[in-house]
Amino acid sequence: MSILIDRNTRLLIQGITGEEGSFHAERCLKYGTKLVAGVTPGKGGTKVLNGVPVFDTVDRAVRETEANASLIFVPAPCAADAILEASDAGIGVVICITEGIPILDMVKVHRHIAGTGIRLIGPNCPGVISPGQCLAGIMSGDIHLPGNVGVVSRSGTLTYETVAQLTQLGIGQSTCVGIGGDPLPGSTFVDMLKLFDRDTDTKAVVLIGEIGGSLEQDAAAYIKAGFKKPVVAYLAGGTAPSGRRMGHAGAIISGASGRAQDKAAALSAAGVAVSPSPATIGETMKKVLDGLQ
């Protein structure tokens, strides 16, 4: 099992004929993902990657291919529109890789999709992988190993480091989700913990947070209130200066809020094993799992 995507997921890629979109479409396909369609307005009727049909609209693609998940590579000025198009076409899981979407565009997106039941991941994220089943993202499939640890992170490459540590210790992953580095992510840590809670194949969770906002504190409160599976966490940016945006739009300490130390303290108080170093996340998870047996 897994969350969000699995071997039955029928993936559609919005922006499949662009440079990024076509590069990653090929990698997803090679990983074994059921890539059923691509969408680029004006290129409907063509085929890419030896037979993946391209449609002008998501609506048409869904009607003809029964796609149920979408991966978005559309440039930032049009990306909010692409998310809304996917949502209105009835796609259940929408994963937006695009970085740099204006926050007020995302405010409108959130208002529109609230209550529709669609699950938005990102934007500004590496996507999702359920190892051995489905890759809907930009991570390297080969560092992953199928297994029982869920990974949820605001970062991309730091997640690769974490997964590499887990895989090296023989600890496989159920699903790895990058929720993205924007201040208004489609899904939060709490949203993903809820899904991992219901997933019988996820035995434990790694949570990778960073400075800025309060998603980690929200996760701590949720875990404290009754999330039973063990959680290992790392918080990036303990040495970041205050008031400066560290790459991600959401990674900024303002005044006394958003500091890594406070997030670590909140998670520790909720019973989470917080790894003090990014190099010991795998080891910390191993200890936790050994303790379970």
Partner: peptide, 12 residues
């Protein structure tokens, strides 16, 4: 490469 990893390297 990557903002989260860059912060993690500073921490390390």
């Amino acid at each position: 490469n990557g903002a989260g990893l860059a912060m993690a390297v500073m921490d390390l």
